[in-house]
């Protein structure tokens, strides 16, 4: 009896194992990025099981792939990280004939300098780093980065704990590019941040937590976090400051080591269907790169100026670029701010 049970168990495991590996797609992505609806929708339509695994930062993703983690079929790095991964030979070139829905993507997100020919990456969602604020407290509503230096809000606001974003905000306020490699501009930005430090309540990336709980009334934050905070506290609003802001584009890529490249291409093509793509925005509260998806969104999201800013705001956005060895100077400046 026992023997037979054991045999049955072994056979089952073997079958599950074999059948599974062939028809399995491993997606490595950010937390709260691939909704269950999308996952199960793809599973039932294509008969492929989708296994989702999450990372916390682009650097974590890079470290995992570089240390030889394989078995992922689809990964979702942000813009500057795509450039790094291409140079490190970690990505597989895309066969666009397998991804016909590529044509749905707005030209605005294509041919960016992190991947000028879109050989390796498909733009997926995008967002900005601006100011989230509680409109019942912060009055008049802020329209400039200088609000983050306003003594009236001393001890009541947070800054991103990210050297490129926070130094970037100071650079923008001073009228420089967020990718400046001018040591003098960097020194000015550093001085500005040191001047600001006594006013800052805390440096934190997960601003949705503290804005939503009322711990801070204003936050330098990523757009999606402000919208998620607004779901908890309806008076939370988000503004892209008039000086401009950083824009990030998250992409979908296939790693060079992907075992199931065919299913990966299928999955990417599926994500780019307007109707499915709209679900991404509903779930993540980030704008997607497929304009036709907008029609499938509920009104509140479709006309949201924070998710879909008007043309003149879009023109003021700037993407962070990897600065190579100059990164060291940013890190030092940030350490000096933190050491004060």
């Amino acid at each position: 009896m026992l023997k037979r049970m054991l045999l049955g168990l072994i056979l089952t495991v073997t079958f599950l194992g074999c059948g599974g590996e062939q028809n399995r797609l491993h997606v490595f992505t950010w937390a709260n990025y691939v909704g269950d609806e999308i996952r199960t929708g793809f599973e039932s339509e294509f008969g492929v099981r989708v296994v989702v695994d999450v990372f916390a930062s682009n650097e974590d993703l890079l470290a995992k792939l570089k240390s030889g983690a394989s078995g992922y079929d689809v990964i979702m790095p942000s813009d500057y990280m795509v450039a790094i991964m291409v140079k490190e030979n970690l990505l597989s070139p895309l066969d666009l004939s397998k991804i016909p829905n590529f044509n749905n993507i707005s030209g605005q997100f294509l041919k960016r300098d992190f991947d000028p020919e879109n050989r390796y990456s498909i733009p997926y969602t995008w967002g900005t780093a601006g100011i989230g604020y509680d409109s019942s407290v912060v009055n008049p509503p802020p329209d400039s980065l200088s609000a983050l230096w306003d003594k009236r809000y001393s001890g009541k606001f947070s800054m991103l704990d990210d050297q490129r974003e926070s130094i970037g905000a100071a650079l923008k306020l001073l009228g420089y590019s967020v990718n400046s490699t001018d040591l003098r501009a960097l020194a000015e930005a550093k001085a500005k941040l040191i001047e600001q430090k006594p006013l800052v309540k805390q440096y934190k990336n997960e601003a949705d937590e503290i804005l939503g709980s009322g711990d801070v009334v204003m936050a330098h934050c990523w757009s999606g976090d402000a919208f998620r905070a607004a779901a908890r506290r309806s008076s939370i609003k988000y503004v892209i400051p008039k000086e401009g802001a950083t824009q990030f584009i998250d992409t979908v890529c296939i790693p060079a080591s992907a075992p199931n490249k065919a299913a990966a291409a299928q999955f990417i093509n599926y994500l780019l269907r307007p109707k499915i793509n709209a679900k991404v925005t509903e779930f993540t509260k980030y704008g997607t790169c497929v304009p036709a998806a907008r029609e499938h969104l509920p009104d509140a999201l479709r006309n949201h100026p924070g998710i879909y800013p008007p043309e003149e705001v879009l023109n003021k956005l700037e993407s962070l670029r990897d600065l190579g060895e100059f990164t060291r100077n940013y890190d030092r400046a940030w350490t000096e701010v933190k050491a004060k």
Partner: peptide
């Protein structure tokens, strides 16, 4: 930070 953001 050296192992993450600064990648140094």
């Amino acid at each position: 930070r050296q192992f993450k953001t600064a990648r140094d």
